[in-house]
Amino acid sequence: MVPVYTPKSEPETAVIVALMEAYGIAYFMQGGAFGTMYPGPVSNSLNARTLMVEDDQAELARELLRPFL
Rank of each mutant, 00 (worst) to 15 (best):
M1N: 06
M1P: 13
M1R: 10
V2D: 13
V2G: 13
P3I: 03
P3L: 08
V4P: 03
V4H: 04
V4S: 05
T6K: 13
T6W: 01
P7N: 03
K8M: 12
E10Q: 14
E10F: 10
P11Q: 13
E12D: 13
T13E: 13
A14M: 07
V15T: 10
V15C: 02
V15L: 09
V17W: 01
L19Q: 11
M20K: 07
M20C: 11
E21A: 14
E21Q: 15
E21V: 07
A22P: 00
A22W: 00
A22R: 13
Y23A: 02
Y23F: 06
Y23N: 05
G24Q: 00
I25A: 01
I25M: 04
A26M: 04
A26F: 00
Y27G: 02
Y27H: 14
Y27R: 03
M29S: 07
M29P: 06
M29L: 15
M29T: 08
Q30M: 15
G31F: 05
G32P: 09
G32W: 03
A33L: 15
A33S: 14
A33W: 14
F34M: 12
F34Y: 07
G35D: 04
G35V: 00
T36E: 15
T36C: 14
T36W: 13
M37T: 09
M37S: 06
M37R: 12
Y38H: 15
P39C: 04
P39E: 10
V42S: 03
V42P: 01
S43Q: 12
N44P: 05
N44A: 10
N44E: 14
N44L: 12
S45K: 10
L46E: 08
N47H: 05
R49P: 01
T50K: 08
T50W: 02
T50P: 04
M52P: 07
V53H: 06
V53F: 03
D55I: 02
D55H: 04
Q57I: 02
Q57K: 10
Q57Y: 01
Q57P: 03
A58P: 05
A58W: 00
A58K: 11
E59G: 07
E59P: 05
L60V: 08
L60M: 12
L60Y: 01
A61D: 08
A61I: 05
R62I: 05
R62V: 05
E63N: 13
L64A: 06
L64K: 02
L64D: 05
L65T: 00
L65S: 04
R66L: 07
P67D: 01
F68Q: 05
F68P: 04
F68R: 01
L69Y: 13
